[in-house]
Design a protein around this nucleic acid. Structure first.
Lengths: 234, 234
DNA sequence: CCCTCCAAGATTGTTGACAATCCTACATTC
DNA sequence: GAATGTAGGATTGTCAACAATCTTGGAGGG
């Protein structure tokens, strides 16, 4: 039950620094494809759009560089990373490691059943989106599920790492708009994961996660390779 | 065989931006304990020591914030993170995920035997350090082994994540100088890992890694909890 | 004695200007 | 005509000054 008395709702108010706000917006721009892969991210223009000077903007960009979302070439500028087929495989290898570990941690918890139930709600959202034939929302709910999965593990570090990997995942999807469509049974695939939590079988759960990721790689790597081949990336 | 003719050694020269250089030095300062956990990292003073203005320094610091090595409190400053016993467990849970995945990737390689041999060399360095009773070098070789292990996996993303986790690992050890001593059989423990690569047994390898990490947590978490209790941080 | 208020000093946040580097396009030379 | 050299414009890298915020110390009042 929540405490609703005003005085006890006081929490260490988190004023977010400007550079964090900018970094978050940049992250979303990269994620959605608003900033195309391989394109240069001009400082002056972006600073103007955000209504700040180049200082805070550069600080924000350095954070994305550290995440591996931007590439820095000295005295030339920052560029959105280009994700090739090898990167897709790498991203999913890393995701398998992170999310597999999160899954195992959850299974080890006494309240694993409750976590599975909360994750089921996320799956339900995927179902409704799939029923409406709403591709974008389906893709977003997909990532939301995985984000919540890692969050439920309670590991701040796994969460931070997963966050970046999910941005890259969405980047790939965005770059394949039109070519990539989420499969109809995507939601059911996720039920296998929540079922694995309920089963409590660590080895089986790991296998489920590996298969889930392998499927996704298969869906993405093929179209991406074909896409990159057709048009030089600029 | 390498090509040693001068003209063919030409490679896209990588001039490193100032902020990267500063970030690397800061990382080492945090890692070695030169910047104590919980201590504030003053901009003006550091900028003076580096001989640069606050601009590039702030950019470098933002990168460490993104890595989770520094904590940002708006309008107050940046502080070196404080690692509690829970963090140790989290760090090693994440390391188990990352390095376990790297281990599995290596086992899947056709040249796994060659990789095992290269890693044996790293273990040999640990042996000589242990024989000399050189604790600091032994600890550094330990981390070098794990860094190389992940590097051999060939995954840029696992490597990036492991890099940060290893810095945090060394931070813990540095904060326990005097209380923490590397055990005599530490080198042999690592031979188990290279043996696991040669065995080719994925499940067994994972188990070896999990045990290895569990041991390390046991060695660190206890002393750290006792240490933090004795003297209030900061 | 304790609490509140206020001012001084110090630190962080932001900005605009200056210096260095790079790319493009045109002129020059062989 | 191809290669080399050279301004011009644009972009990034760096800096020092200004504004905003926080902390610290002491004065004043209850």
């Amino acid at each position: 039950m929540k405490d609703t008395t005003a005085v006890n709702q006081i929490s260490p108010l988190d004023r977010v620094p400007t550079s964090s706000l900018i970094a978050q917006q940049l992250r979303e721009a990269v994620m959605s494809g608003a900033l195309a892969q391989g394109s240069q991210v001009g400082e002056a223009e972006l600073a103007g759009r955000f209504g700040v000077s180049r200082g805070p903007l550069r600080e924000a960009m350095q954070r994305l560089v550290q995440e591996g979302l931007l590439d820095s070439i000295p005295h030339r500028g920052l560029f959105v990373v280009e994700l090739a087929a090898d990167d897709i495989r790498d991203i999913y290898a890393a995701r398998t490691a992170i999310e597999g570990a999160a899954l195992q941690a959850i299974i080890g918890r006494p309240d694993a059943a409750g976590i599975a139930r909360r994750l089921d709600k996320a799956v339900a959202k995927m179902h409704t989106a799939a029923a409406r034939g709403d591709g974008p929302v389906l893709a977003r709910s997909d990532l939301a599920f995985h984000e919540q999965l890692v969050a439920e593990s309670g590991s701040a570090r796994l969460q931070r790492m997963a966050s970046t990997l999910l941005v890259e995942t969405r980047m790939c999807m965005a770059s394949l708009t039109g070519k990539y469509v989420a499969p109809a049974d995507l939601a059911d695939e996720h039920t296998k994961i929540t079922d694995a939590i309920r089963s409590g079988d660590q080895a089986a759960a790991r296998k489920v996660m590996e298969d889930h990721m392998d499927d996704a790689v298969g869906r993405l790597a093929g179209p991406l390779a074909a896409d990159r081949e057709g048009s030089g990336s600029r």
